[in-house]
Amino acid sequence: MSTSNKVPILMYHSISDSKNSLSLSVDKFYNQMNFMKKKGYNTINLNEINQNDKNKFIITFDDGYEDVLINALPILKKFDFKATCFFVTDYLNLHNIWDQHKNDFILLKTMSKIQVDEWLKNGMTIGSHTSSHKNLQKININEKISQISRSKNFFKEEFNIDVKFFSYPYGSYDNETVKIIKKYYEFAVTTKRSRYIKDKFNEYLLPRVPVNKNDSLVKFFLKIKTPYEDIKYKND
């Protein structure tokens, strides 16, 4: 195995005091970012993941919630951190209706095009989370291509940006899906749990470290600085 540095790719969704299971409180997010700054960490983007510099980490947000702009962005700017937000392009300025089958479903507002532009103007990065958040393992190849390509085309048409980053909805993919992703994107993140280790993971199946609403700062430390995620979930 490579002895290169292990890079935690943090996975967040909503940053708010909502009771939604995917929402991390604003205070906890602040404390986590403050912790990373005090430990000498700096953020990089996915395309910089094979740098040899120590103490690098990546911040990602799935779904593109409005509260990420309102609550997380000021904190990111305070600590001079950058982050990538993955958007569901058909549902900008709407809500997370793809989660409505969940027993604990709570409505969350997504960013509008104007807010996406504000995210970009503040030095942040965007990625695709498909056009309508469908499970890519459960649809045919034509639907897969549509879900994967339409979201990329949207950002090219609306923002003149060639989006290079992708996040699999629900963390679900198959070999057919990965082949399509390789045609449209350069990096893709999963929900497989581990810090990134060069030569162990490829750029289209990058693992992440999920940050959960009940995680204490001690557990956050374990996920970032120790093999906790690498070993505990190595067979996932």
Rank of each mutant, 00 (worst) to 15 (best):
C85P: 00
F86R: 04
F87T: 04
T89Q: 04
T89F: 04
D90G: 03
D90T: 03
Y91D: 13
Y91P: 00
L92P: 08
N93W: 04
L94I: 01
L94A: 08
H95D: 09
H95S: 09
H95A: 04
I97T: 04
W98S: 03
D99E: 15
H101T: 05
H101L: 00
H101E: 08
H101I: 03
N103F: 07
D104I: 07
D104S: 15
I106W: 04
L107Y: 07
L108D: 07
L108C: 08
M111S: 06
S112Q: 10
K113G: 02
K113T: 12
I114T: 11
I114N: 14
Q115T: 05
Q115F: 06
W119D: 10
N122H: 15
G123K: 12
G123T: 11
M124T: 04
M124L: 15
I126M: 08
I126C: 11
S128F: 09
T130N: 13
S131H: 12
S132H: 15
H133K: 14
H133V: 13
K134Q: 13
L136H: 09
Q137W: 00
K138H: 06
K138A: 10
K138P: 00
K138N: 14
I139T: 07
I139S: 09
I139V: 15
I141R: 13
I141A: 07
N142E: 14
E143G: 07
K144D: 03
I145S: 06
I145G: 01
S149P: 00
S149L: 10
R150F: 03
S151N: 06
N153L: 07
N153I: 09
F154K: 05
E157V: 00
E157I: 01
E158G: 00
I161E: 06
I161R: 03
D162S: 06
D162H: 02
K164F: 00
K164D: 09
F165V: 03
F166C: 02
F166E: 01
Y168V: 04
P169I: 08
P169H: 07
Y170F: 15
Y170D: 08
G171V: 06
S172W: 01
